[in-house]
Each structure stands twice: as C-alpha cells, then as structure tokens.
Amino acid sequence: MADTTAQDGDGGDGIRTFPFPVDLSVLGVGMQVGPMGTGRTWHAVDAPLERVHRIDFHVVMLFSEGPVRHMVDFAEYEATAGDLLWIRPGQVHRFSAADDYRGTVLTMQPGFLPRATVEATGLYRYDLPPLLHPDDAQLTALRSALAQLRREYEDTTTLPLSLHTAVLRHSLTAFLLRLAHLAASSDRAAGGQADTTFTLFRDAVEKGFATNHSVSAYADQLGYSRRTLVRAVRAATGQTPKGFIDRRVVLEAKRLLAHTDLPIGRVGAAVGFPDAANFSKFFHQHTEMTPAAFRAELR
C-alpha cells in the first residue's frame, strides 16, 4: 500500500497525527487496502510508529501471523493469526517495534461512506472492543469480503472513476457490516447489551463528559430515575454510571496528555476540572500515576 504522510499535529514534542493520504490512494479514492509485511510500505516511513500517535481515519488489520502486541487507547492487545484489530479515528495507538505485522490492512477516510452506512456499521462505536476474534465461518466470510474489496480497489480499468468509487463503497459496506456484526456480537458475549437506556446514556456522556460528570444530571437529561440508569449501565458494562463517566474522562485526559503539549492545568480544564490540583488527584486515583509522570512515560 502507498505511504501515508505524517504531520506533526502540535510541534515540538507533540505526538504526531497521521492524516488519511487520499492523494496517495489508487485514483485518489477515500480508502486503501493491501498487504502488510516486508517489502510493502503501508504507513509513513519517517515516523517512529513505536511511539504513541493518533490517526484521523479508520484502520482495520486482519492478521495472518502472530502474536502481535499493539496498544490502542493505552490498553495492550495481543493479536494472533485470524484476529482483526479495528482502530477508529481519534484513537491513539502504538505499534510494537519487536513484532512483524503480516496480513491485510484496510484504511478508510471519514466521509467516504454515506451517513446511513456509517450508522448501520457502527463506525464510531468507541465502546466496542478493538480486538476481534472471529470463528472459522466468520473469518472465511470476512476474508472473502476483504479479498473482493481488494480486487475492486486494484481494478482501475474496468469502470469509469464514478462507478469504480460506487462499487468500492458497496464492497466496503459489505465488509464493514460483517465486521460490525462481529464487533457487536463480541461485545454482547463479553456482557454488553444494546439496551436503549444505556445507549442513550453512552451517547450523552460522549457529548457531555468534558463538562458534566454528574450521574443525576444525566438521569434528569434523559428522563430516567437514577436507579434505572444505574441498573441499565451495570447490566451493559458491569460498571456504575459514575465509573463509566470517569473512565471516559480519564481516556480523554490520557489522549490529551499523550497527543498535545497542553499544560497539565489546561488538560484538566478540557475534561471538566478547572482546578489543576483536583484534576491531578482524580487522575492519580484512577491511574496510580500523576499526569506529568504519565506524559513523561510516553515521550
């Protein structure tokens, strides 16, 4: 696959952001698909990928060998042959310098698919696990769909560009629908549920966590009693609503600490802690590290 171009998102020591290289994809379409492995460059050659970085596009890696260790949003995952790793826009991740990445990689630019498809495929379900373990039948279907997508991607002579792009969107949608079903099934098997109460709460937290950390405020906003909200969130995640909110706040704080050179106080303010001391206490309580120590470990 063609090289991507990395841009230094913040200057200085800031963690680099990788934009989708639409100018390097075949015919300039908003996706790429091809092999990982020796002799094929599918990421920027000048970037230290073993350091934490952020992407603004989707990456799906289907591994043919393993194990491979990969960090996504500060959690370590180990993938082996037949596993898939789905990294979404805005997530921070880090490649393993010690492991070989072999298999097929798909990258996709936000906006390449229509909104209805985006919603149907759950492209921005950040609550779903990034590492997926398909069974034999699921893996066969996913490999077949991905191989078809790759054939369409590489066929640049059969159709005019407009039809070529339309066919790619249909083939990509077929693959992503299978992938989304696998992700949702994996989530349910792990104890998650598609309960409407929890879904509404999750979406409200995603929109409001930077300013609203109150369970009661979310319950009032959604028209539920606090008790109903507690039951729904615990059934879906095994956590309390407060634990769910705090986890999202900590994740965003980690992203900002890793990705930007913002002062610690401004990071705290960005996630709802105007007082830097309160933010540091909160962060240490949930990570057993100070914000400064966490940032230093990643740099």
Rank of each mutant, 00 (worst) to 15 (best):
H53M: 00
H53L: 02
R54Q: 15
I55H: 11
D56Y: 08
D56P: 12
F57R: 01
H58K: 02
V60I: 09
M61R: 07
L62W: 14
L62P: 03
F63D: 00
S64A: 12
E65T: 05
E65N: 07
E65Q: 14
E65C: 13
G66L: 08
P67S: 06
P67K: 10
P67T: 04
V68M: 09
R69A: 06
R69P: 03
H70P: 03
H70W: 08
V72G: 10
V72A: 13
D73T: 02
F74L: 07
F74D: 06
E76G: 11
Y77R: 03
Y77I: 01
E78N: 11
E78S: 09
A79R: 04
A79H: 12
A79Q: 03
T80R: 10
T80L: 03
G82I: 01
G82V: 00
D83N: 14
D83K: 03
D83W: 14
D83A: 02
L84D: 02
L84F: 14
L84M: 14
W86A: 04
I87C: 00
I87Y: 05
R88W: 08
R88A: 07
P89Y: 01
P89D: 04
P89H: 01
G90P: 01
G90Y: 15
Q91V: 06
Q91W: 11
V92Q: 06
V92I: 09
V92F: 12
R94M: 07
F95S: 04
F95A: 05
S96R: 08
S96F: 11
S96T: 05
S96C: 04
A97W: 10
A97R: 11
A98C: 14
A98H: 13
D100R: 13
D100T: 09
D100F: 14
Y101R: 06
R102A: 05
G103N: 05
G103T: 02
T104L: 12
V105Q: 02
V105G: 06
L106I: 11
T107C: 07
T107E: 11
M108W: 10
M108Y: 11
Q109T: 00
P110F: 03
G111I: 08
G111R: 02
G111A: 12
F112S: 04
L113M: 13
P114C: 00
R115C: 11
T117A: 14
T117N: 13
V118E: 11
V118T: 11
E119N: 14
E119Y: 09
A120K: 05
T121M: 01
T121K: 03
G122H: 15
G122V: 00
G122N: 06
L123H: 03
L123P: 06
R125E: 15
Y126Q: 10
Y126S: 04
L128D: 14
L128Q: 04
P130K: 09
P130L: 02
L131Q: 14
L132E: 02
H133L: 12
P134A: 09
D136A: 10
D136W: 03
D136Q: 13
